[in-house]
Design a protein around this nucleic acid. Structure first.
Lengths: 187, 187
DNA sequence: TACAATTTTCAAAAAAGATTGAAGGTTCAA
DNA sequence: TTGAACCTTCAATCTTTTTTGAAAATTGTA
């Protein structure tokens, strides 16, 4: 293997980072930001800004901005070691926390405003007897039903009831055709 | 009321269209496209390209492109009336269908590729005994667990089991503090 | 305090994405 | 066929978002 060959880990890491970057926008995260989080996930330890910028070929400023975004989403912890100004960026690896956080933020940004507006609009249209207003109102009510449902599901999930660790493990077990289900349910 | 005053319906419509446009990008739809769908939802009947472009102040081309996008998502039906070249764009108003469709497309675009890659990557890392590979692999397995869970939920939903009409009505009833839950559960 | 080692900021550049409008198609009715 | 009425396309333009990089700010040590 020559010096420029990549190890298995590096090859997988490269693909993983690229996929993560592609998918980021679907989650409301920029490609760069997503790539940094993906890269950090692929490493056993945290890293500092210099390592990240070298590994991913981006500027120091970009790394700083992206890491701040990630911290806002609570996907990244900043660690200060005494004796140095250096910040170690460590990714949140508890995916249940991560998912919870993403659901929480998206709910607040996307669903809650719809709900608030609907609360205003529906009564206004109710006061207008024209057929046009009636049809419009019916549609808004259908949307409200959907939003309420999504809200309820999100709340249930956020309260921790829906998807515990056990649930996750059971599902993975099932997916892998391993006897995890029997093990976990008391043999 | 002067000639330039907006009726209640028009005022609400205007706000609704604007909100829809703002939220569109969160769903992977451009603001313009989302505005057209919102505007159509607010009207009792379908509309042709000219009406849309005048109502929303966009070019004919933009309307045509956006409507094609919407049709690809199956959010819009194209209706050809005999005796005219005119196309009437009619929005899909069954929100259950719409939601199903959105879940289906997003699952295919976002989750399925992750799953496929993980199936490749995990065995590769399994073959590498280094601690770095092991940590990375553990993380990929955690992601897999999550994806499998999301997949299962999406499938359940798409199969129609999870959220039927009754579920919707019960939830809306509960949200409105109406006795719908008790009625429907037979008490 | 001054200095060195970092990170953070932000205006400007680049990239990505959306929109336009003129040219080109298609369909209909006569 | 033909012309009128519409819809569709796509290269050019405009807009928005993302990224950069150099200057400013911050922190730790002596």
């Amino acid at each position: 293997m020559s010096a420029t060959d990549l190890s298995t880990v590096d090859t997988v890491r490269q693909s993983f980072v690229q996929l993560w970057g592609t998918l980021g926008p679907f989650w409301g995260v920029s490609p760069t930001t997503a790539r940094i989080y993906g890269w950090l996930l692929s490493r056993p330890e945290g890293a500092d800004a210099t390592e990240i910028m070298e590994a991913l070929g981006m500027s120091r400023g970009a790394v700083s901005m992206a890491c701040r975004d990630l911290r806002d989403w609570r996907l990244l912890h900043f660690e200060h070691n005494s004796g140095s100004r250096r910040v170690v960026y460590r990714p949140e690896t508890d995916l249940e926390k991560v998912t919870r956080r993403v659901v929480e933020i998206r709910k607040r940004r996307e669903w809650d405003p719809i709900r608030d507006y609907l609360k205003e609009w529906i009564p206004q249209l109710e006061a207008d007897p024209s057929p046009e207003a009636t049809v419009f109102m019916e549609r808004l009510k259908a949307i409200e039903a959907l939003v309420v449902m999504a809200d309820t599901m999100a709340e249930t999930f956020l309260k921790g009831g829906a998807v515990g660790n056990l649930g996750l493990k059971l599902l993975v077990g099932a997916a892998n055709n391993l006897p995890a289900v029997m093990e976990k349910t008391g043999r």
